[in-house]
Write a protein that binds this DNA or RNA. Structure first.
Lengths: 209, 209, 209, 209
DNA sequence: GCCTAAGCGAGACGGTACGTCCCGTCTTAGT
DNA sequence: ACTAAGACGGGACGTACCGTCTCGCTTAGGC
């Protein structure tokens, strides 16, 4: 995910173990130090690796942390609890649980902040994290449409637009609740939130929404 | 806003002009350099002020940027456009417009990220930015209740809970749209978003919600 | 000694007590901190005086320390022990004793070092310290001539030249012994030194020397 | 001379050129600015070296200047002019000439002053400067004894004591003449001084002195 | 099995910013 | 006019990391 160099034929190959060690060390350092006090020299030391090895594989702190955090979200799944409401509550709770971990909190918002001035970084975040998780919304919608809880697709454009809106609302609300309001996104809150969201979506005048 | 020292009786008083110059210089530097390349030495130079003067008033970059960004949001107002939907669309658009400014983009998420490991900073953000703007939600609800668009209060606890939820949804969605999705929160998006939000709130089983 | 301002007629007169307090505080700070860590702000605090008061009277650290150290040497006297040798041993021991005090050690060499690039400071040192103590050599020579231990003067020029040479030898040797060799200029050493000095002077081919 | 670290096996070795450049830059800065206005940042810049490189090798200004000045004295030699008197005059003149150079004047007394409160610095001065030059006294005495101008050694203890005394007298007198009296230690002065010194030594009651 | 090119650890390198300390000046109010 | 208090613009400090470089050593693949 991180190494873009096309892997030359000759010479000593890069150690695969180093990659994993570095990413793990990065998360460990995020937990202990937070984003701003995390230094690449320290990560290298924790990983038992020279700084040069680290720089050979990642361009800098931003890219490294994106990759380290992205792995956290790969464990997200959409549970099948029988109803759309329950499915949403389930996945939102899991999302909130990941976001409550200090390595996610510390790292994620920081790279998003950095990405406001770095198009390539923004793209990397989108590719590694955002778009990878949008599958959850797609799956959820499809499953709900099968169950008849949501009307079928009206067109690819509208669908994409709606998915994006939902994603912004869901991810945004959980992030805001967790990081800004600094209150736990617990079962009660998720139930309230899901009620508003589903109600807002189901009765929409816009078809398919 | 920044200086908590009780202003001693004796000695040369602190220059009021310096405060304004420093905050303006901070926003200027945020625009030009972004959060991570902003340095306090540079801000001091831009403000025509010594570094010591800056450090005498703010504990560090985080606190300074919170204050500098907070001023941006003070211009937010709730327009009276006749209906709740129109009011919300108006204020969300204005909020989005502020958030689209580079000094807000660059600075806001960064201090939120920092605040995940700094309780005092989180409190400062809440006091200077979040709670100050929650008045908009209160005003909007009151106005809508006068108009009969929303049922009257059922109790102070429920009301606070609902305000918080609304704030998390609104602020979260706009921020996510703007910074993570990196798409403009323009009139079309705001209209879609407002429809979902109002629908979700109006028909709620929870009274007053 | 320190204040050169001609004392204007009108307004509140300067506190005389402040001068003494400042010089005493300077010596105290020299003992505790040494020259390089002595700061004028600290001296002012120790003296219970504002920084402005201090700067109104002395141009800077150098001048202040010269005055503070000069007072130490004013207690030097030439004892009358009956013979030139005994007189010299006596005064050299007293000189060594003063130089052994930390406030003298720390301060004196430092201002001498500074004076290598500051003509006015060199002049101040000469006036406040060196020339004031040269009287001891003159007195000793005169006394020895009365006793017939040294031949009478041959001329003012030669005399001055000889006094200067003696002063350089005596002061130089004691300072070097104390500060560079960092050995005590005790009775044994002074006896050896005096023997060499007197022998060198008494039998000189140059008359009067 | 400055670096005591035993030179680790691994990693990039320290640049030898940097050492020389730094010491030369230090002397240059001493000439232009003098001790008190010399800054390590400026020295680093002049040497075309980063501040960290400088701090990696020297603990601070004091140690750096000792090394920079010590090199000046390494060129000192004892000329063989046939007689003890002429030898002494020759070496004292050369010593005076070095001491007259602004980089020596500025630096030497300052580090001596600092050394009054810093045992390690005093030791460094002794090792780098004083003891290295004491060889001149030893050589001179040996040569004079060969010639029969001085009686042979009586014992190692007495010899050391005498060498120390001579060194304190010679170095002290020249330094005092140059820095405190601020008069040149020229041929006339050196002739007078040497006469007194030799006379004082030759006829001593203490054998070997 | 040997060659060789890349990878590796270590750590020095030129730099930048940090946050602190002190400088010497100034602006208050109070004596 | 003096004082104490303390903020001011400024400069250097010594430290921490940055990202690059230069070492000598390791290691696997292609010959």
């Amino acid at each position: 995910m991180q190494s873009r160099t096309p892997a030359s034929r000759t010479g000593r190959p890069r150690s695969a173990a180093a990659d994993a060690a570095i990413l793990a060390a990065t998360r460990e350092a995020l937990v202990e130090l937070g984003w701003s006090k995390l230094t690449l020299g320290d990560v290298a030391t924790r990983a038992g690796v020279a700084k040069t090895t680290l720089y050979r594989r990642w361009a800098g702190k931003n890219e490294l942390v994106v990759d380290a955090v992205a792995e956290l979200f790969d464990e997200l799944e959409l549970p099948d609890r029988g109803t759309l409401a329950a499915d949403i509550e389930g996945v939102v709770l899991r999302f909130a649980a990941i976001l409550a971990r200090p390595e996610a909190k510390s790292g994620l918002m920081a790279v998003v902040a950095e990405s406001t001035r770095d198009e390539a970084l923004r793209e990397r975040i989108r590719a590694s994290i955002v778009d990878r998780q949008k599958r959850l919304v797609h799956t959820g919608r499809a499953r709900a449409q099968e169950r008849g809880e949501l009307p079928p697709e009206t067109g690819p454009e509208d669908a994409a637009r709606t998915v994006d809106l939902i994603f912004d609302i869901v991810a945004g609300a959980v992030v805001h609740r967790t990081l800004v309001s600094a209150e736990p996104a617990d079962e009660d809150w998720v139930r309230d939130f899901t009620r508003v969201l589903l109600l807002g979506l189901s009765g929409s005048a816009r078809p398919g929404m």
